[in-house]
Amino acid sequence: MRIRVTRTGGLAGIARRAELDTSARTDAPHVHALAREAMASGLRTPTFGVPDGFHYEITVDGRTVHCADPRLSDAQRELISLVLREGA
């Protein structure tokens, strides 16, 4: 599974992008479960969020959803943090 996260907005207005390929990961089942949860609670169109809040675009195998701080689900938060930390 290929998971791409794009983070935009924020006080600094600096975008960050990262992609994670789960094929070689030992924790792939966990990451896949997180990704499915995160996608299920995402929105199809960008959401307003709050002033200076981060906006996120999560793309899993070609399908994209949107979400924004501070209203992330636990799965979205964990997935976003994992991909931005360990993705390339």
């Binding site: 006080l11 200076d52 809040g53 501070p70």
Partner: peptide, 15 residues
């Protein structure tokens, strides 16, 4: 959050 790189106004408070 953890190592959270931002500050925002959520309509009620500063975070």
């Amino acid at each position: 959050g953890h190592d959270y790189d931002n500050a925002f106004w959520n309509g009620e408070r500063m975070v």
